[in-house]
C-alpha cells in the first residue's frame, strides 16, 4: 500500500515538474517571440526640438542626403552593431538593405574619403540611449522595450 502511494506520489511530482518546465519554456519562447515582433523606435535626446520624424526623413539622415538638423546643427548618427536585431530590422525597414552591405558601403566611403557624416557604432542599446540622451544633435534607434530613460524621446516607430 505504502509502495503504491509512493509510486503515485512520484508520478505526480514528475508530472508537476514537466508542467513547470513546459510553462517556463513557453514563457521564455513567448518573450523571445514578443521581442521578435516588437517595434523598433528611432530616438533623439529629450532636448532635441524635433517632435516626430517620418521613415523617409530618417532614411535621408542615415544615407547622408541631409547632414544638418533644421536648426543648422550637424546630425550625429548612431548605429548598433550589424548583428544586433534592432540594427537588422532598422536597416531592412529604413535603408532597404542588409546591415552587412551597409557596413561595407561605409567602409568603402571611409577609405575613398567620400563619407560625409558616417554613423558611430555602439555596442548595445543601453549605450546608444546614454549617448543620445547626452547629445541634443544625436539620433539612434533600438527596440521599443529597450527605451528606459526619460532623457530620450521616440520620434519614429517602425512596426
Amino acid at each position: 500500500m505504502q509502495m503504491k502511494c509512493r509510486k503515485k506520489l512520484f508520478r505526480k511530482a514528475a508530472v508537476m515538474g514537466l508542467v513547470t518546465i513546459a510553462a517556463l519554456g513557453f514563457s521564455l519562447f513567448s518573450t523571445a517571440l514578443a521581442k521578435a515582433g516588437e517595434a523598433v523606435v528611432v530616438i533623439v535626446s529629450a532636448d532635441n526640438p524635433m517632435k516626430a520624424l517620418s521613415v523617409e526623413e530618417v532614411h535621408k539622415y542615415y544615407e547622408n542626403d541631409i547632414l544638418n538638423w533644421p536648426n543648422g546643427k550637424k546630425i550625429v548618427l548612431y548605429d548598433l552593431r550589424t548583428k544586433d536585431e534592432a540594427r537588422q530590422r532598422f536597416s531592412e525597414a529604413v535603408l532597404g538593405k542588409d546591415p552587412q552591405k551597409v557596413a561595407m558601403e561605409w567602409a568603402n566611403k571611409k577609405i575613398t574619403n567620400t563619407a560625409k557624416n558616417p554613423p558611430r557604432t555602439v555596442r548595445s542599446a543601453i549605450l546608444m540611449q546614454e549617448r543620445v540622451a547626452k547629445d541634443p544633435n544625436a539620433i539612434g534607434y533600438m527596440l521599443k522595450s529597450d527605451v528606459t530613460s526619460n532623457k530620450v524621446k521616440i520620434v519614429t516607430t517602425i512596426e
Binding site: 561595407m104 567602409a107 568603402n108 577609405i111 575613398t112 567620400t114
Partner: peptide
C-alpha cells in the same frame, strides 16, 4: 577612379 579599392 575614386571607388577603386579591391575589397569593394
Amino acid at each position: 577612379n575614386v571607388e577603386h579599392y579591391p575589397p569593394f
